[in-house]
């Protein structure tokens, strides 16, 4: 339970995902379940696809028609609570924020981790963006088997 251990429930997670039909294109998944005073996801979106409004404590709402899955909100979120998800054939492709060393390298296979911190699958590193624009929060694109689309959340280096 989110309040007791920091793990969002399955229902909470699903409430942030659009349908699989929509996910043929990358979309932002905002895992921000609390009213906290924060709005960089909304102000950083160049497509005006994330809405928070005047009261910055409002939870973000993504307009999946406008969201292009560009990933700017992923590295702009101070809570590192946003990923983008996309279905590509039998794979789920994610862009996620990563703030550890060493950075993954394209082509490497890392462990795929769920919201409990458990390793659930392998994750292929497809792209690593680390420019001045991302301000030290690397944007890492990975793909995992499609069945883990609602469980996968981050990557961990295989030790």
């Amino acid at each position: 339970m989110l309040n007791r251990d920091g793990v969002a429930s399955k229902d909470q997670v699903l409430s942030r995902f659009p349908s699989n039909e929509v996910l043929v294109k990358a979309k932002a998944i905002t895992e921000c379940y609390e009213e906290i005073p924060c709005n960089p996801c909304a102000t950083s979106c160049p497509f005006d696809a994330i809405h928070i409004g005047e009261d910055i404590n409002t939870k973000p709402v993504v307009d999946f028609d406008l969201c292009t899955g560009c990933g700017i909100c992923v590295y702009s979120c101070p809570g590192l609570a946003i990923v983008t998800a996309q279905i590509v054939k039998d794979k789920a492709r994610f862009k996620l924020p990563y703030e550890f060393r060493p950075l993954p390298i394209v082509g490497e296979v890392w462990d795929g981790v769920n919201r409990n911190g458990e390793v659930i699958c392998k994750a292929l590193i497809e792209k690593v963006t680390y420019t001045a624009r991302v301000d030290r929060t690397a944007l890492v694109q990975v793909s995992v088997p499609l069945e883990f689309i609602h469980e996968f959340i981050t990557v961990r280096r295989v030790l």
């Binding site: 703030e99 550890f100 060393r101 060493p102 030290r136 690397a138």
Partner: peptide, 9 residues
Amino acid sequence: MRITEHPIL
């Protein structure tokens, strides 16, 4: 023990 590598600093 000093930090040699850090993601932010």
